[in-house]
């Protein structure tokens, strides 16, 4: 298994390199640093000196790939590509436009992001899988039909409306929880309750349908019929046989997103004013802070690759046939 892990990690390197090159091309080749400077400084105040100052402040004044004026190894290291792209591999992201260190900022903001994303994920998984199992238990009855109708209707509502509606009803009309904000310690649940609940509700429609399809596919197999034929009760069939065997497709979709939970949710965090990575990203996008967006892209793909490896490992837990040789 260790050999497998090492191989997978080595395989991840070229992919990260590709991500790196892609973002580098997007941020520095499509538009030159001069263009970015002009955009950020606004059209009115643009002078060549201002552009130069903007570039020096951010370290964009160096050549892209090859520095002819430097000596020896510095010819390759004293470049934008090395500074801004390759340094990401050691999680050195440089400073944001407000001068703060991006890596430290990310560390601080992971906590609040996880505080929302983890409960949403766990609760959402539990609710949708239970709901889907219930629909499958009552399959081909009016309950199943209307359950699917409700799911399709819920899928058709933009997540923005869930949040806006929830904030309006629960915070503004019923005054149950504060509309937005974040507090640590004992105060936290008051602030977290609403975003978590809304996050779960927003995901019910599509996830339930997805799990229902998986379960229905599993329930039509021969072993299930055999189990019923030997007198196993329907509930036991569902939990002992169907749920267990449906774990592989479920894990394929679910484990991948676990590491990405660190990234938080863009929309929920910005609506509720939670100082997590999601709102950090949104603020950076709106302020056009290119360094932060680049850093988030890189971290996102690292976490995604970790998720892929975790998915493979999780198969060994639920399916004894899967082994890594």
């Amino acid at each position: 298994m260790w050999a497998y892990l090492v191989r997978r990690l080595l395989y991840a390197l070229p992919i990260l390199m590709g991500v790196n090159l892609l973002t580098f091309a997007l941020f520095f080749v499509v538009n030159t640093p001069d263009d970015m400077a002009r955009m950020q400084l606004g059209v009115k105040r643009v002078t060549p000196e201002a552009i130069e100052r903007w570039k020096v402040e951010r370290g964009y004044d160096k050549p892209l790939f090859f520095n002819e004026s430097a000596e020896g190894g510095a010819q390759l290291t004293d470049t934008v590509f090395f500074d801004k792209s390759l340094r990401m591999f050691v999680f050195d992201f440089g400073a944001a436009d407000d001068g703060r260190d991006i890596a430290r900022e990310i560390q601080q903001r992971m906590g609040p992001s996880l505080a929302i994303a983890l409960p949403t994920f766990v609760l959402g998984l539990f609710v949708t899988v239970s709901f889907a199992l219930m629909l499958v238990f009552f399959r081909a009855t009016p309950l199943d039909f209307w359950g699917v109708v409700v799911c399709v209707a819920m899928m058709s509502i933009s997540s923005l409306f869930y949040i806006i509606g929830g904030q309006w009803l629960i915070s503004k009309i019923w005054h149950l929880v504060p509309i937005s904000g974040y507090g640590g310690g004992l105060d936290a649940p008051r602030f977290l309750a609403l975003p978590v609940v809304l996050g779960v509700i927003g995901g019910i429609g599509s996830s339930t349908r997805w799990y229902r399809t998986i379960f229905l596919e599993e329930i039509s197999r021969d072993y299930v019929r055999t189990a019923r034929a030997k007198g196993v009760s329907e509930l036991t069939v569902l939990f002992r046989h169907v749920l267990k065997n449906a774990m592989i497709p479920i894990l394929t979709g679910v484990v991948v997103v676990i590491p990405l939970l660190f990234m938080g949710s863009l929309i929920i965090e910005s609506f509720f004013g939670i100082p997590g990575l999601g709102s950090y990203t949104i603020d950076a996008i709106q302020a056009q802070d290119f360094a932060v967006v680049r850093a988030m892209v890189f971290i996102g793909s690292v976490l995604y690759i970790v998720g892929l490896i975790l998915t493979d490992l999780s198969y060994t837990l639920v399916d004894p046939r899967v082994r890594f040789e």
Binding site: V19, L22, T23, F27, L260, V293, G300
Partner: peptide
Amino acid sequence: VLNSIPGVLLIAAAVL
């Protein structure tokens, strides 16, 4: 490579 970048972030970078 394209898949491993979270969708919103890639779109955000490209739109910026």
